[in-house]
Design a protein around this nucleic acid. Structure first.
Length: 356
DNA sequence: AAATCTACCAACCGCGCACTT
DNA sequence: CAAGTGCGCGGTTGGTAGATT
């Protein structure tokens, strides 16, 4: 289908924004919200395309933007998430509060990509280039690659859930308390808790988990197996509740330490409390995750870490102890996903990677 | 001092998706 | 269902400042 230009190009200014233009845009959005970007420039008295205004706002003028040098932790997060997600900068940006996708993309292209290349790591695949890295890491590369593939798959599912939450949250906010500064798709408002729904998505997905190496797809249809509907937030019919509880009970034996949040627990919490509750319970959901290690980057770059994390992710020790491996399969599966979850959502500073 | 190179990053462009008509 | 519209995303470009020759 053909596409009309986003705005009349004739007579519209391009190029760097002046302080006066910034001031106009800022003042207008602070007073009215951005509303329709297409209509904004004329209303705000700007000779700019709406798209340009949106870009200027989201990448520069927004008040919740952190500028300046990236910290080591931020760098590591970017590398780890890039290994998981590839060039999905907006998705990566959701894990780096106050950083924009554009800024992250620029930083990757100008700094991190080159640095990885220098270290002998392919910045696209995050794999060693022709055995540049030590042999231990090379030996594990197949496992790492397989894990990567699954992590990316599951992270995509997780992001779907996050995106859905953001949309619904936005709608709820719009319906209840009109907010002037709405529509920050790159960085969902801090007051919402992706963590909550994300955990549900992870939990529901886990139910279908066969093994860490299984090839499965998660399309969100698993919502029916969740303790409450993804689409309605905290709703749960009695029948579904019962069915869920049954499923929960079935899993209880082998998954005893996996905690499920009851409807009553959920309803008794407001959003903030809910978030805090989940922060609190994260430890019990994912016991021992604080010792996951230096994260994916470390695993990629450091052979010793490969060993450590492969244990966390449920890799058996090369069939050396088949029986024990079989018996501990469930626990390993659990640790596998615990490790991924911990890496992606961990709030604690990762240990410095030896090669960074 | 001037010319050239390099790095950086704000901004632009085109595409695709979701929603509306 | 098709066309139109708005918006977000990712790739790319172009201007500028600093470094080097």
């Amino acid at each position: 289908m053909g596409r009309s230009p986003c705005c009349e190009k004739i007579g519209l200014k391009k190029g760097p924004w002046t302080p006066e233009e910034d001031q106009k845009l800022l003042a207008y959005i602070e007073e009215h919200g951005h509303g329709s970007w297409r209509a904004l420039p004329s209303k705000a008295g700007l000779q700019r395309c709406g798209k340009s205004c949106r870009l200027r706002w989201t990448n520069y003028l927004r008040p919740d933007i952190k500028r300046g040098k990236f910290s080591l932790q931020e760098e590591q997060t970017i590398i780890q998430l890039h290994a998981l997600l590839g060039n999905r900068w907006s998705a990566i940006a959701t894990h780096l509060p106050k950083r924009t996708d554009n800024e992250i993309k620029n930083y990757w292209n100008t700094h991190l990509k080159k640095r990885l290349a220098k270290m002998g790591i392919d910045p696209v695949t995050h794999k060693a280039i022709n055995g540049t890295l030590n042999s231990t890491a090379g030996d594990k590369s197949a496992k790492v690659t397989a894990s990567l593939s699954h992590m990316a798959q599951w992270e995509s599912a997780r992001l779907e859930a996050e995106a859905r939450l953001a949309r619904e949250s936005k709608m709820r906010i719009a319906a209840s308390t009109p907010s002037k500064l709405h529509g920050h798709s790159n960085n969902p408002p801090a007051s919402t808790s992706p963590c909550f729904e994300v955990l549900i998505a992870w939990q529901s997905a886990k139910i279908d988990l066969e093994s860490p190496t299984s090839t499965l797809t998660f399309t969100g249809s698993n919502a029916s197996m969740m303790p409450f509907s993804m689409t309605t937030g905290l709703e749960l019919s009695e029948s579904n509740s019962h069915a869920w509880q049954q499923r929960n009970d079935e899993l209880e034996g082998e998954e005893s330490e996996w905690k499920f949040i009851s409807k009553q627990q959920l309803q008794g919490l407001d959003s903030k409390e809910t978030e805090e509750h989940f922060i609190d319970c994260e430890e019990s959901w994912f016991p021992g995750t604080s010792n996951i290690g230096p994260g994916f980057t470390g695993m990629l770059l450091d052979g010793s870490n490969v060993h450590d994390t492969s244990e966390c992710w449920g890799e058996s020790n090369n069939g050396q102890d088949e029986q024990r491996s079989q018996a501990s399969g469930d626990a390993e599966n659990k640790n596998y996903w615990n490790g991924i979850f911990s890496m992606v959502n961990s709030e604690q500073p990762p240990q410095p990677s030896p090669l960074l």
